[in-house]
């Protein structure tokens, strides 16, 4: 039964987007598709509306920084299907400075998740209705969850114990 669910997750998306799926990883019972950044909105629309998947609930969107690997960033989407009891992870890979289309049009909950990712990694989401920092102050410099951002922060007047830039 479990295996069958995995197969559905793999086949449905691969057959629909044969070119856009760059890589498919199955690890510890979790299915991950790496998608071309330009196709992510289409892929999300598909997994939400498809009869076999029905991923109506977006659990999470987050960034990961693989510095110094290239391309450096990944944006990870976790989604959940309540009807089919399935979980799926989609990913896009982005180089520094690249942006990705926003999925706020597919799930409204993506709004804050994408703002958080922007705040922490500086990844821009095209078409986001209100892309601004969410946790940090508006005039904050830098994006703290990047690997080249020191734990103690950068040294300035307000942070004398920080690391020299």
């Amino acid at each position: 039964m479990k295996k069958q669910a995995e197969l559905v997750l793999i086949d449905r998306i691969k057959s629909k987007f044969p070119k856009a799926v760059v890589d498919t990883i199955v690890d510890r019972g979790e299915v991950t598709h790496v998608i071309e950044a330009s196709e992510i909105v289409e892929a999300c629309k598909f997994v939400k509306s498809d009869e076999e998947l029905q991923m109506v609930y977006l659990s999470d969107v987050c960034g990961v920084d693989y510095h110094p690997r290239k391309p450096r960033f990944e944006v990870v989407y976790h989604m959940l299907s309540l009807k089919k009891n399935l979980r799926l992870r989609l990913k896009v890979r982005l180089a520094e400075g690249e942006s990705v289309d926003s999925v706020t049009g597919v799930w409204r909950s993506a709004n804050w998740y994408e703002r958080e990712t922007f705040d922490m990694f500086g990844i821009e989401f095209e078409g986001h209705p209100d892309l601004r920092r969410i946790y940090l102050a508006e005039d904050w410099e830098g994006h703290p969850l990047r690997k080249d951002y020191p734990l103690k922060g950068f040294k300035d007047d307000l942070n004398p114990n920080g690391i020299e830039e």
Binding site: D27, E30, S59, D60, C62, H78, R87
Partner: peptide, 17 residues
């Protein structure tokens, strides 16, 4: 590797990725 594990916390789905 990478995992996403979620539990039903009192407030809702608490997930650790």
């Amino acid at each position: 590797g990478e995992v996403y594990s979620a539990i039903e916390s009192p407030k809702g789905e608490l997930g650790f990725y």
